[in-house]
Design a binder for these strands. Structure first.
Lengths: 237, 237
DNA sequence: CGCCCCATTGAAGGGTTTCAATTATCGTGG
DNA sequence: CCACGATAATTGAAACCCTTCAATGGGGCG
């Protein structure tokens, strides 16, 4: 078991363009040699660096190549409320089209490479390319569907089910971007997970222990090994 | 006080086209005499009638003129999980673009008039009219933003804050569609509210009583009268 | 190697649910 | 229009889950 975690230490997730949620955007653009005009490739941000402050003007989406981001708002008593974790292939900022400002702060959870995708120039492509139009609509719509499921999760589920759902969603997202593995590295702290799930650090910690006692997974620091995927999925519904 | 509730008994919310979330769609189309080709106007559904069963092919959005709808999924143990209430001016089905099937069941909470908006024909308008394209993107994006706020609400807030947020959001939504009033008719049952908020009926009931003890509102059956809007808003943060 | 931060674990308190009983409301039919 | 039954809503008490407060253990980084 120790060996597994050793090999994971050097694990670094990234997404090839073909599996990126914006990939279907970039690839046809590449073909048209229009890519460079609307997409800045692979800009680097350091761990904990703030990419965007909330309320600043919205100009572009951030598409994650490798690493991870979190988005959060700050409450009146100056506390963070995390409302999203973004992994390779994910696109950040879809909520900002209508408000014309970023609604959230965006921060790097680790050293991260992102592609920047300018909204205005993307929209001009929508007008000329029907597949881009469909892609944008699908991207926005599936984001809505994802949030619907998230709302159901948080409004209906207990702590252990929330945590199981969170872990399984990480598994699914890595799988989707070509990193199918029962070994998962948590890029965020327990405090961030707790904040996001609307629980306390202690409750998250206790429920991770509980999942281990149930032989569903093994946890060692930021590394999880899913021992019984079906049992994990059962906990999610 | 009794008088207020008397006069409310006949209250019926509806939205004029100018204030409908699809209004900016319908109005330019009206001008072009294209309206009738893509929009079926004011179809009537009876209370409790099922408009759409989940998993059936997605073809059109439903825009509410008067009345109200709820959307829900059914769990493995055949229980409803409500994930949305829709009021006059709201548009239902935005999550279904990407999945190509309706993800939720749609049911009328009261006798309801809806306009039906066909997706394919709407998309052809996107290609010819830039304002329609922008409207769709804004509609989808603001829906995402709304869900972000909802997720935060449910993941972070206690029962009384959830309920306050729910009531205040009803107030805001009626205000937005031209029915600004401190008197609100709840079109849904306590059971539906509880289900949606992830609470029990008893907890909802107790917290309505609590809001009355705090002199924030008066409740009589399905009718609420907000006595202290600022206090209600304070509870929401 | 030691410090600091993060994570884990324990015990008490508070909030929500569950179970149970009562009261109110709505729809129906006389 | 009122009476009745069925359904919905309210209220109380005990059980349970999560939080809070507190202390301990462990890992990463200089």
């Amino acid at each position: 078991m120790q060996d597994i975690f050793k090999t994971l230490r050097s694990k670094s997730y990234s997404v090839p363009c073909e599996l990126c949620s914006a990939g279907a955007l970039c690839i046809p653009m590449l073909l048209n040699n229009k890519l460079d005009t609307i997409l800045q490739r692979k800009i680097s941000y350091l761990k904990n660096e703030i990419l965007v402050k909330a309320k600043t003007p919205f100009t572009k989406f951030y598409v994650i190549h490798s690493g991870a981001l979190k988005t959060f708002v700050t409450t009146s008593d100056n506390q963070q409320q995390i409302n999203g974790f973004y992994l390779p292939g994910d696109i950040v900022g879809l909520d900002s089209i209508s408000t014309k400002v970023y609604n959230n702060n965006i921060q790097a959870l680790s050293n991260t490479l992102v592609c920047e995708l300018y909204y205005n120039e993307l929209m001009s492509l929508v007008d000329t390319q029907k597949n881009v139009r469909d892609l944008i609509c699908n991207l926005l719509s599936s984001n809505i569907y994802d949030y619907q499921k998230l709302v159901l999760c948080y409004s209906q589920k207990k702590a252990d089910e929330r945590l199981a759902t969170f872990i399984y969603s990480l598994y699914q997202r890595y799988e989707k971007s070509g990193h199918s593995s029962l070994n998962i590295k948590l890029v965020m702290s327990r405090a961030d997970i707790a904040n996001y799930l609307g629980l306390t650090i202690e409750t998250v910690s206790r429920n991770i222990s509980k999942l281990q006692e149930l032989n569903i997974l093994t946890a060692k620091g930021k590394y999880l090994f899913i021992k019984n995927l079906n049992a994990l999925i059962d906990l999610c519904n």
